[in-house]
């Protein structure tokens, strides 16, 4: 247990350093790319005085190091500044758009792991037989196209030609749900509105599947490859020689050692979904952070860009910490690395 706490503390320390690095990098890049944010924000009819005034408020005339100092000072007090695009505090924007994206990415992650790993186990268990060939063909197919292509295909097939799912949005207009957490799956339950709750899920499935598809293929291929390697190990032959049931060998004795190397990649895939969500959200008109991020970058909305990037970086780091802890739990060699052998 103490090893897990040690790992957690170390990883959080590293994450803070990474976050500071990311913030500096994005801060610099956002200011280096051409275009005057104050001029863009105020529009073509603004006077020179108005622009100069806004530049002053935004500390744009200061040295970049001093600008960064102002940014950190505000960040520490929980203020990410005001978005020039929505004219609201960036924290408020993030609080509004982030839950939609997290809901989508989280469900996609669950689908990826929930389908990808069992398919990989199945393929490895029946390696070089027809279930393996089928899984490998499907996996190759899903990996071969990016998620926004799947988004368009799924939308055409399952929402347009066959209207099984709603074509866009998070919730049908007929429902009025009070926002508490921003997570509609939770807010509809708080409101006690079962019909709206089901409607939210109905909206979620198609974009989540589109986002998850290539991850499913990736997870299945990875699991299969690692498990096929594990099947060559003496301890699997031992399990077979002692008559352990083949499905138990696959599910337990071959799967667990194989999961450890797969997990790092699956964690990265999961985090990468945040990036892929940009285009899937665009296709499904999903009011999430990714779509917000695209809009603010196009408008050179400096505060909003910083806020969005920091939140995405933070989510990446949290996912990585969770993956590291999971690996430590699964791999006794890490957990017991400090134990003295007697």
């Amino acid at each position: 247990m103490s090893q897990l706490v040690g790992i957690l503390v170390r990883r959080i320390g590293i994450s803070v350093v990474v976050l500071i690095g990311v913030s500096m990098l994005i801060f610099a890049i956002a200011r280096i790319i051409p275009g005057d944010p104050a001029r863009i924000a105020l529009g073509p009819n603004a006077t020179a005085e108005q622009i100069a005034k806004l530049r002053g408020e935004m500390h744009l005339d200061e040295n970049i190091v001093i600008q960064y100092g102002f940014f950190i000072k505000d960040l520490v007090s929980g203020d990410l500044g005001t978005s020039l695009y929505t004219n609201r505090p960036v924290t408020l924007d993030i609080a509004q758009f982030l839950p939609a994206t997290l809901e989508l990415v989280f469900l996609a992650g669950v689908i990826m792991v929930g389908l990808g790993l069992p398919l990989g186990i199945l393929a490895a268990r029946f390696r070089n037989k027809w279930p393996d060939h089928l899984v490998r063909a499907l996996a190759l197919l899903t990996v071969s196209a990016p998620s926004f292509v799947w988004a368009v295909i799924l939308m055409l097939l399952c929402a347009y030609y066959l209207p099984l799912f709603p074509i866009a949005g998070r919730l049908s207009d007929i429902y009025e749900i009070e926002r508490v957490t921003g997570f509609l799956t939770i807010d509809t339950l708080i409101a006690g509105n079962v019909a709206a709750f089901l409607d939210v899920w109905h909206h979620l499935i198609l974009p989540a599947v589109a986002l998850a598809l290539s991850g499913i293929g990736q997870a299945a291929r990875l699991t299969r490859a690692n498990m096929v390697e594990t099947y060559e190990k003496p301890y699997i032959e031992m399990a077979q020689a002692y008559g352990f049931f083949p499905h138990r060998i696959a599910r337990i004795y071959a799967f667990k050692p194989s999961l450890i190397p797969s997990l790092t990649i699956i964690g990265l895939d999961f985090a990468a979904m945040l990036g892929n969500a940009f285009l899937v959200e665009a296709v499904f008109a999903w009011p999430g952070l990714s779509r917000y991020g695209v809009n603010v970058i196009l408008r050179k909305d400096l505060n909003a860009i910083m806020g969005t990037v920091l939140i995405i970086a933070l989510t990446f780091l949290i996912v990585n910490i969770i993956v590291d802890l999971l690996i430590a739990v699964l791999n006794p060699r890490i957990r017991h690395s400090t134990r003295v052998q007697s």
Partner: peptide, 16 residues
């Protein structure tokens, strides 16, 4: 039942 060449690698490393 069977006993193998290398006892350590014949036991699964991820289970007690």
């Amino acid at each position: 039942s069977m006993i193998f060449q290398d006892p350590t690698s014949s036991l699964n490393p991820t289970f007690i």
